Amino acid sequence: MAVEVRDAHAENRYEARVDGESMPVGIAQYIRTSELIAFVHTEVGPQHAGRGVGSALARTALDEARVAKLRVLATCPFFAGWIARHPEYQDLLYQSRSKVSD
């Protein structure tokens, strides 16, 4: 199964397609600014769950964030968990510059 991932800018999401299918089988929704990309929702169709589609979405999106020099805010539980399991991407995570005081 070949997974192709592309950034669908107009929809603010990455889309994954398999084996040349026209409809996406997975998506990673984001909010993007000039300095930050926040991944807010990831979804993979049940027939493709557990087959690497989510990983392909995460890897492509994070690789592109690195090239664009964007910080990453992983509010989506899938992205947060995926980054936690792949330490080579943890340097992309957004760090708040302000400190909260009591």
Score class of each variant (00 low, 15 high):
residue 1 M to Y: 12
residue 2 A to C: 07
residue 2 A to M: 13
residue 6 R to V: 07
residue 6 R to N: 06
residue 7 D to W: 04
residue 7 D to S: 09
residue 7 D to N: 15
residue 7 D to C: 11
residue 8 A to P: 05
residue 8 A to D: 11
residue 9 H to I: 07
residue 9 H to D: 07
residue 10 A to F: 09
residue 11 E to G: 03
residue 12 N to P: 03
residue 12 N to D: 06
residue 13 R to I: 01
residue 14 Y to L: 02
residue 14 Y to H: 01
residue 15 E to Q: 09
residue 15 E to D: 10
residue 16 A to C: 08
residue 20 G to C: 05
residue 21 E to H: 05
residue 23 M to G: 12
residue 24 P to A: 12
residue 25 V to E: 04
residue 25 V to L: 04
residue 25 V to C: 06
residue 27 I to P: 00
residue 29 Q to S: 13
residue 31 I to P: 05
residue 31 I to L: 14
residue 32 R to T: 02
residue 34 S to N: 15
residue 34 S to M: 14
residue 36 L to R: 06
residue 36 L to A: 03
residue 38 A to D: 11
residue 38 A to F: 04
residue 39 F to A: 03
residue 40 V to A: 08
residue 42 T to Y: 00
residue 42 T to L: 04
residue 43 E to L: 14
residue 44 V to P: 02
residue 44 V to N: 03
residue 45 G to V: 12
residue 46 P to W: 14
residue 46 P to A: 15
residue 47 Q to D: 12
residue 47 Q to V: 02
residue 48 H to K: 06
residue 49 A to C: 13
residue 49 A to P: 07
residue 49 A to M: 14
residue 50 G to M: 08
residue 51 R to E: 13
residue 51 R to F: 06
residue 52 G to M: 00
residue 53 V to S: 00
residue 53 V to I: 06
residue 54 G to V: 13
residue 54 G to I: 12
residue 55 S to Q: 14
residue 55 S to A: 15
residue 55 S to D: 14
residue 55 S to C: 09
residue 56 A to T: 04
residue 58 A to P: 01
residue 58 A to Y: 00
residue 59 R to W: 05
residue 59 R to A: 12
residue 60 T to P: 01
residue 60 T to V: 11
residue 60 T to I: 05
residue 60 T to W: 03
residue 60 T to C: 10
residue 63 D to A: 14
residue 63 D to H: 07
residue 64 E to F: 02
residue 64 E to H: 06
residue 64 E to K: 07
residue 65 A to Y: 10
residue 65 A to F: 10
residue 66 R to L: 03
residue 69 K to I: 10
residue 69 K to N: 14
residue 71 R to H: 05
residue 71 R to P: 00
residue 72 V to H: 02
residue 72 V to S: 04
residue 72 V to E: 00
residue 74 A to S: 05
residue 75 T to Q: 02
residue 76 C to I: 08
residue 77 P to H: 10
residue 77 P to W: 11
residue 77 P to N: 11
residue 78 F to L: 06
residue 79 F to A: 06
residue 79 F to C: 03
residue 80 A to M: 11
residue 80 A to C: 10
residue 81 G to R: 14
residue 82 W to H: 01
residue 82 W to A: 00
residue 83 I to E: 05
residue 83 I to P: 04
residue 83 I to G: 08
residue 85 R to F: 13
residue 85 R to D: 15
residue 86 H to E: 08
residue 88 E to Y: 09
residue 90 Q to F: 09
residue 91 D to A: 12
residue 92 L to E: 07
residue 93 L to N: 07
residue 94 Y to S: 05
residue 95 Q to Y: 10
residue 95 Q to M: 09
residue 95 Q to S: 13
residue 96 S to A: 15
residue 99 K to W: 13
residue 100 V to S: 08
residue 101 S to R: 08
residue 101 S to L: 13
residue 102 D to I: 15
